[in-house]
Design a protein around this nucleic acid. Structure first.
Lengths: 203, 203
DNA sequence: TGTAATTTTGACCAATTGGTTAAATCACAT
DNA sequence: ATGTGATTTAACCAATTGGTCAAAATTACA
């Protein structure tokens, strides 16, 4: 038997992340989290002092899971189209592994923006890098001109939205669980192609 | 003075819609809604029997506000590109007037899909109409080939996501309230252009 | 004006929920 | 073994919350 660290705090974190991301802060019950972790409710207060504190820790965890990987791609020195392909592929992969993350962050940010925006900002996204790259390519006549804000909005929207609106897509477009999974997998190519085609100037 | 119907039930509906769409079902308190409406809490139970009943009425209201207008455009017999332009313009307009709607529907659908999917489905969206139109245009060589599901996903994603992720956009992209409003207004053109450019075959 | 129906209110209740506390258990060095 | 500090538990508490109910206020109308 290999020695397995049964770190209680990690068990609590995992349970809390599951419950919080699934039900949201208001919908989550401390008892739910304790049950999910298989421990006494008081232990939650032993490791984290309150529901708020526990939530903030989890929120930070979630942000750190999915923000740095994609930000690092955006600010890298890859060619623009390659950036698009890798971003799309990477972002969708992360969301496939953590289907509840996007909706969770969005909702909590809506309910309580001032409390949580700090947690995000310190990740340090510098929009100027991608902005300069886009302007340079446009001036060189390699792509159509577009504001960096709209470029990013388009890219992130098409990657993320199908996850947040998952029930809508499953329900409205008549595919079940696995049909949805395949649909998502296809989007890695669709999104990058849509972005690139829209940017490409016709000759 | 024109005779104004001060229908209490409508006042309750408006108050409930505001509180529910802003805080979500779990975050909304019956007392909040009563305060917003300026009435006694018991009146809520007099008109609607329970929090659940009240919520379902509001949810249906919200769905009816923003689904029929855009669905009617999608299933109309307009040319494809014109459809894209009107859909984008119309959808974004509705969301500007009701900024909380999209996030509200998304979140509640995530928390409780089985209860709420019925409310949406009966709006009767027939995906085959737009699917046929896209296939026909592709076969005629007028546009690039794309699955209707991805077409719709792209279109809706780019329209809706900037509203759901509003705090992120305001916070990350360094524009304030009015900068955000202008950004959204610009998207009416950006989204339709992006869609159309991506579909247009280079010659 | 009287009276029945409707609407509105305040007082109250049972259940839930986040949090506290003191006791019990465990790990382990001496 | 035994004592000490960390971990875990059960019992309990105060506040909140959705909901009830009977009385009061208002309205409809014969």
């Amino acid at each position: 038997m290999s020695k397995i660290e049964v770190n209680t705090e990690q068990i609590v974190r995992a349970a809390a992340r599951k419950v919080f991301t699934h039900k949201g802060f208001d919908g989550a019950r401390m008892q739910d989290i304790a049950d999910e972790a298989g421990i006494n409710k008081s232990l939650l207060h032993y490791y984290f002092r309150s529901k708020d504190k526990l939530f903030e820790a989890i929120f930070q965890d979630v942000i750190n899971t999915f923000l740095p990987p994609v930000v690092s791609i955006l600010i890298s020195d890859l060619p623009l189209f390659e950036k698009i392909r890798r971003f799309t592929d990477q972002y969708i992969d992360i969301l496939v592994r953590n289907p509840d993350f996007a909706g969770f962050v969005i909702h909590e940010l809506k309910i309580n923006p001032q409390r949580l925006l700090g947690n995000i900002k310190q990740t340090g996204v510098d929009i100027n890098i991608i902005k300069n790259q886009i302007e340079k390519e446009a001036e060189a006549g390699n792509i159509r001109s577009i504001k960096a804000e709209h470029f990013i909005a388009n890219l992130i929207s098409m990657c993320v939205f199908p996850f947040i609106a998952r029930p809508v897509f499953i329900g409205m477009l008549n595919f079940g669980e696995d049909g949805y999974a395949q649909f998502i997998e296809e989007r890695k190519i669709i999104v990058s192609e849509t972005m690139i085609n829209a940017l490409t100037v016709s000759r």
